[in-house]
């Protein structure tokens, strides 16, 4: 039952997002993009931690929300200062996401190897 909670959560979240027909004004669209990227980064980080048996729910949850909000906030401050910090966040989070993905892949591959031998 608890195993399916994330799946249900995702489905309910998608449903709510589509159903409420909430439209972010286009000048704030960039902040949502950055926030989403930060969220994705945290999710991959959480997966990595889970695989490495270092997962901690509190760190994960607080990291998710603070990263998301801070990323959007930084992008916003950047736009106020005329510096495109959204771009910096996209690059930084992109690099991190791919690093995490690579580590997850390596971890799964090496574990398989050990198991099969």
């Amino acid at each position: 039952m608890y195993l399916l909670l994330p799946v249900f959560g995702l489905l309910i979240g998608l449903f709510i997002g589509f159903d409420v027909n909430f439209k972010v004004p286009s000048q704030y669209g960039a902040y949502l993009s950055v926030a989403m990227l930060a969220a994705l980064d945290t999710i991959f980080g959480g997966m990595k931690a889970a695989l490495q048996k270092k997962f901690d729910a509190r760190t994960f949850l607080s990291g998710f929300f603070s990263n998301t909000l801070l990323a959007a906030l930084f992008a916003f401050v950047g736009s106020l200062l005329g510096v495109d910090l959204a771009l910096a966040a996209v690059v930084a989070f992109g690099v991190r996401i791919f690093n995490n993905l690579a580590e997850i892949r390596h971890f799964i591959l090496t574990r398989r190897k050990i198991q099969s031998h």
Binding site: G9, L11, I12, G13, L14, G29, L32, M36, A39, I43
Partner: peptide, 12 residues
């Protein structure tokens, strides 16, 4: 996390 993320993805 999945709930919030799903909402964000849908809105985006």
């Amino acid at each position: 996390v999945a709930l919030v993320f799903g909402g964000m993805v849908a809105v985006q």
